[in-house]
């Protein structure tokens, strides 16, 4: 696992049924592009998060394929429909095989 990787997610705590809610996510990650060279002139190998997904109660909200042009500490903002009380599951997939996860509950009154 790349060191110090930490996700941060913002989801409202409650919504009405069928409401669109705004979601913001950020994860600390170097997103080494594979284009940079170290002080000895050797290319630093690519090491990025290559995919991010957000699901709600097992159903897909967004699935993003990420390439090295995504900035360090990747940020995404999008909208999800909330049909019922449940859980958002967020998953980030690292080139090195690591998987970072976070989840947020939301209640529908």
């Amino acid at each position: 696992m790349a060191s110090g990787v930490k996700p941060r997610v913002k989801v409202p705590k409650s919504a009405s049924a069928g409401e669109a809610v705004e979601i913001k996510t950020l994860i600390s990650h170097q997103m080494e592009s594979g284009q940079r060279k170290d002080s000895d002139g050797n290319t630093i190998p690519r090491s990025i998060i290559n995919r991010f997904t957000c699901e709600f109660n097992g159903e897909m909200v967004i699935d993003i394929e990420m390439l090295p042009a995504i900035s360090t500490n990747p940020y995404f903002q999008f909208e999800a429909t909330v049909p019922e009380t449940g859980t958002f599951a967020f998953t980030w997939y690292d080139d090195d095989g690591s998987v970072y996860e976070d989840s947020k509950e939301i209640s529908v009154a």
């Binding site: 110090g4 930490k6 941060r8 913002k10 913001k24 950020l26 994860i27 600390s28 500490n73 940020y75």
Partner: peptide, 12 residues
């Protein structure tokens, strides 16, 4: 604070 990338390091 959710746009500010510094906040993830504040969490750390």
């Amino acid at each position: 604070d959710f746009e500010n990338p510094a906040m993830v390091f504040v969490d750390q």
